[in-house]
Design a protein around this nucleic acid. Structure first.
Length: 427
RNA sequence: GCCGCGUUCGUCUAGUGGCCUAGGACAUCGGGCUUUCAUCCCGAAAAUCACGGGUUCGACUCCCGUACGCGGUACCA
């Protein structure tokens, strides 16, 4: 039976690097038809940050990494660790000093394990291993004792954790031996680096996973991206669902070098997920994301127009807010256009618009203004671009005619009029 | 300092001795499509496989050394 666990310390929000660790643990568990649980390592009372277990659980849920069973809090298991530390003292594997209990390390020989990541041997000379604290004077265990006791009791196998633990391997192996317990298999995941190649950590501005959520990233894209940071599935697929990841995942395929977190590819992948989503699904996600949107009922109409134009859910707002927000025209935007005599042309445009039979049809719209462009000897593209700016105040928008339809004919007309007034007032 | 781990295009990577004059993806640049922007399609540029020695008929792939990077060196995890 495969049992894995995600074991963060509650020193803050769930960090993006932690997402990958949790994901790999989840994949290994599910692939082996096993369980994936959560253990909160809150034995250092000084570093505990209020609300962080809640954030971790909430974010895991959002990502879809469902946890089996109730979360375990180490702080509630103090007696268990104490008891085990005492056993070690009785067996003369440990001793008390200054109110703490130290483990007596073996100084001869070597200690090694075969790491599941890359299937490589990692070896240490025992002579380099000093005695270490297993139970602090405040009665709480250190990581080393807590890890060994809990993962043995929880029957965790394999133990998957960050590479920062590699140096502690001899401590853990010796502890398992002293207890007479079977050693689990270990997998140490390479540490994710920031663009400056330093460890991607909280202090280096690495964002919590919840921040990516706020930025409009999709959970499935985050999962997919994090999975590929250091792992390539045998099939070579780039876009794969959680269940595809489960069937393809294997720790021995995980790269051993430290990868650099590059948000550009995450953004591409997020856009990829948005484009592959059905309109209905995207609408639903936008509704959830844009809680206070002023025109929620119109989102569904706009979705087909912007689906290929946004990479993140948050991109929806700047691209479409002209449809329901009041406009502020900017003379600089008009100056960018390739058309002179904008006032004159705009009033001609308005005239045509007023005379166009309602409801406006795309065909007529196009024919009318291509004709007008010919008449005035300007390029059709420039003509439409002027209309675009008049109606939206922007040079970049969803398709013009469709946008006008959503805006409504009256409102579109009003916008053109306002644009004209604006131009007259500035000249 | 000491201990451990690593090093293929800017980034994520493929590659397990001959298929590699090193493949893919993102990003970049150019072109096509297009009423803008995107999407989509086509193409280009981009890695002397960190460096130096071996081993071998043959090395990106195996061994050793050096450099560099990362991690650890706490009664933090």
């Amino acid at each position: 039976m495969i049992k894995t666990r995600f074991a963060p310390s509650p020193t803050g929000a769930l960090h993006i690097g932690g997402v990958r660790t949790a994901l790999y643990e989840y994949l290994v568990a599910k692939k082996g038809n096993g369980t994936f649980s959560l253990r909160i390592e809150d034995t250092d009372r000084a570093r505990i940050v209020e609300g962080s277990p809640e954030d971790i659980i909430e974010t895991l849920n959002w990502l879809g990494l469902e946890v089996d069973g109730e979360p375990i809090f180490q702080s509630k298991r103090a007696d268990i660790y104490k008891e085990h530390a005492k056993k070690l003292v009785m067996g003369e594997f440990a001793y008390e000093q200054d109110g703490a209990i130290y483990f007596k390390t073996k100084k001869e020989g070597k200690t090694s394990i075969v790491d599941l990541v890359g299937n490589r041997k990692i070896e240490f000379d025992n002579a380099t291993q000093d005695d270490f604290v297993i139970l602090k004077s405040d009665g709480f265990p250190t990581y080393h004792l807590a890890h060994v006791v809990d993962d043995h009791l929880m029957e965790t196998n394999p133990v998957i954790r960050g590479a920062e633990w590699i140096s502690s391997i001899p401590k853990h192996v010796m502890l398992f031996e002293a207890f007479g317990w079977e050693l689990p298999q270990y997998a140490h995941l390479p540490i994710i680096l920031g663009p400056d190649k330093s460890k991607l950590s909280k202090r280096h501005g690495a964002k919590p996973a919840s921040e990516f959520r706020k930025d409009g990233f999709l959970p499935e894209a985050i999962l997919n991206f994090m999975a590929l940071l250091g792992w390539t599935p045998p099939s070579g697929k780039e876009i794969l669902s959680l269940s595809e990841m489960i069937s393809e995942f294997d720790l021995s395929d995980v790269n051993i070098a430290n990868p650099i977190f590059d948000i550009t590819k995450l953004e591409w992948m997020n856009g990829e997920y948005i484009r592959r989503m059905s309109d209905g699904e995207l609408t639903k996600r936008l509704h959830e994301f844009l809680v206070d949107h002023p025109a929620k009922e119109k989102i569904a109409l706009v979705v087909p127009l912007i689906k290929e134009r946004i990479k993140k859910l948050s991109d929806f707002v700047p691209l479409t807010d002209f449809l329901w927000e009041k406009l502020e025209y900017d003379i600089e935007v008009f100056k960018k256009l390739n058309i002179k005599d904008q006032n004159e042309i705009l009033s001609k445009i308005m005239e045509k618009l007023e005379n166009m039979e309602k409801p406006w049809k795309n065909k007529d719209f196009e024919k009318t203004f291509r004709g007008l462009a010919d008449e005035l000897d300007i390029k059709a593209g420039d003509m439409f671009q002027l209309i675009r700016v008049a109606v939206s105040g922007q040079t970049v928008t969803p398709p013009l005619f469709e946008s006008i339809q959503i805006l409504g004919e009256d409102k579109a007309l009003k916008r053109v009029k306002e644009a004209l007034e604006f131009l007259e007032s500035t000249s």
